[in-house]
């Protein structure tokens, strides 16, 4: 058995909000996070922000990763952040991935999305970023 197994497992929800059906990226990230010792809850396709936030509360995740390739990120991502705030769950952080134009990234971050990972990001960078962010959340 691995010695690196953390005594506490970080939990992450990987969500596919909106109408696109391209879930390869979401699955690659889910697998990489699993291999790094995370418990990954995968929502499946076509979720609304309301559904994702409800799942996040029931599952008590540390963070929500949103994979969006439909171009609807500018509404869907801030919606999830807003709903989390409304539920008193602003401590659950949101990150995103997919086809996101560079010029949209600062706007999304201004609206509370912690980080955006665009195509070409290595999975180890994602894992490292999330591990640090989760550690910080629990410290």
């Amino acid at each position: 058995m691995s010695q690196s197994t953390p005594s506490r497992n970080y939990r992450v929800l990987i969500g596919k909000p909106g109408l696109d059906g391209h879930d390869r990226g979401a699955k690659v990230i889910a697998r990489a996070l699993r291999d790094a010792g995370f418990e990954v809850i995968y929502s499946g396709l076509h979720q609304t922000p309301e559904m994702l936030v409800n799942i996040a509360l029931q599952e008590d995740v540390d963070c929500i990763g949103l994979s969006i390739l439909s171009g609807a990120h500018n509404t869907l991502m801030p919606d999830v952040v807003k709903l989390l705030n409304e539920q008193g769950a602003s401590d659950i952080f949101v990150f995103g991935g997919g086809i996101i134009p560079d010029e949209d990234i600062p706007k999304l971050k201004d609206q509370g999305v912690l980080e955006i990972f665009t195509p070409g990001t290595s999975t180890s960078d994602v894992v490292e970023f999330l591990t640090k962010a989760c550690e910080k959340r629990h410290s």
Binding site: S2, S4, T5, P6, N9, A30, R31, L33, R34, D35, A36, G37, F38, E39, V40, I41, Y42, S43, G44, I55
Partner: peptide, 10 residues
């Protein structure tokens, strides 16, 4: 790894 993919919700 000690990790898991929990996919029943799908």
């Amino acid at each position: 790894s000690g990790g898991a993919i929990l996919g029943d919700r799908v």
